[in-house]
Design a protein around this nucleic acid. Structure first.
Lengths: 225, 225
DNA sequence: AAAATAGTGTCTGTTAGACATTATGGC
DNA sequence: GCCATAATGTCTAACAGACACTATTTT
């Protein structure tokens, strides 16, 4: 009764980032049906009001269904609206930023679900290019002063791995010594007591994030303006 | 056909901030009808897909209608969703942060549209308390490293006025000298050539924002953690 | 010992914050 | 002259960035 003909189509979409071979990559999904059948798009789908507790629940449901995994860091990005972004009518999409460790996605992915380097993306369905730009901007912008990039790693990680995650996200090199100093002084990581040794070298202490995600005052590396 | 019974109710809401008597205030609207008739709420309303180009257009339409003015700085905040936030059913509200100069609102407002100090708000309809918390967090968080607070001033303003706007937003005092130094070195303001003198004192140069809104690296005052 | 990565120490330029001082207007 | 506000100058402690150096493992 209330959801009249006036109500827009309501969907969710996710910009899923991960790090593979040291590079920041985006997870895309080839659409099996119209509109834009066969074209790459962000994983997404309709909100099911019968089933979903809220929009975040809808994204988790969709991601679980399309990728089989569940351990995503999720953060709401922005909502994209308008009469022309979907040929089916006036539509509204709540977009999310999602981060995962590469290993959580399983080894192969599939022919229709794949990772693309962020600087070499195919052209996307709907207004998904815009959404990707928004997701990248958020990740890069907030990455400088938050623990966001750490969500691209496993629960336990070495400081070098953490630094490489920040570098992949920010697209710049960070001084080794400065990184360690800042991160340790800020106390955003804590030692797990374990250590790992990657073939042939001195083993590194393993850390985990202390608390949930955080933002902090001091920046790690400069924003690439 | 597509907007089935499954589609949520789609609305927009705005957290409108302004500065009055040196204090940060929020614009509220007393609801004339059910649900929550008679209770204070954020100004908001349904998205009209026949009429609105996008969600931002819908907010501008609603704000124009409820306050009579149009010159709002607008920025999308977040989208609030769920089955319980509106008694009429599963609903989705795209929330906006809106900033205005006090004088743009006209002198008296009305009995049903009023400004309340942000630290002394009445209890609000729906989940609008949450939305206000989100708006305040955005304003305070981003205010430290952006020109957001300047959108609470007239087009021309003195540096002292700008500083008071930042102080009202951040809730802290800022050193006079540091403020001027930073703001001028960053070049975010430009002189208009005019000056104004507030009763009995040395007149101050007037500035305007250079370009549209900006964010910058250096912070103005510390975030009140 | 060599290679490779983990981890530490030190210097320098920049800058936020504090505080003191000068400038310019009305009375 | 006094008062109030505008505007500038100077000192210091904190810190990012750069770079050199030491430590610990496997081969």
């Amino acid at each position: 009764m209330i959801a009249s003909a006036d109500a827009p189509i309501a969907t969710v979409d996710a910009t899923v980032f991960s790090i593979e071979d040291g590079a920041l990559k985006l997870l895309l999904h080839r659409r099996p049906e119209a509109p834009f059948a066969g074209q790459w798009a962000l994983p997404g789908g309709f909100i099911h009001t019968q089933e979903d507790r809220d929009a975040e629940h809808a994204v988790r449901r969709v991601l679980k269904q399309k990728t089989g995994t569940a351990g995503y860091y999720l953060e709401q990005l922005a909502t994209y609206t308008g009469p022309d972004r979907d040929p089916r009518g006036w539509s509204l999409s709540v977009a999310y930023l999602a981060l995962v460790a590469r290993h959580a996605l399983g080894p192969g992915l599939t022919e229709n679900v794949a990772l693309f380097p962020v600087d070499d993306l195919p052209s996307l369905a709907f207004d998904h290019d815009d959404i990707v730009a928004g997701g990248l901007a958020r990740l890069r912008g907030k990455g400088v002063y938050s623990t966001l990039p750490v969500s691209l790693l496993a629960d336990e990680f070495t400081l070098s791995e953490a630094q490489r995650a920040y570098e992949a996200v920010l697209g710049t090199g960070i001084d080794h010594s400065s990184f360690r100093r800042k991160v340790l002084e800020l106390g955003i990581f804590e030692e797990t007591g374990n250590s790992r040794q990657g073939a042939n070298k001195r083993p590194a202490k393993l850390f985990r994030l202390r608390g949930r995600g955080q933002t902090f005052d001091r920046s790690l590396g400069r924003t690439a303006v």
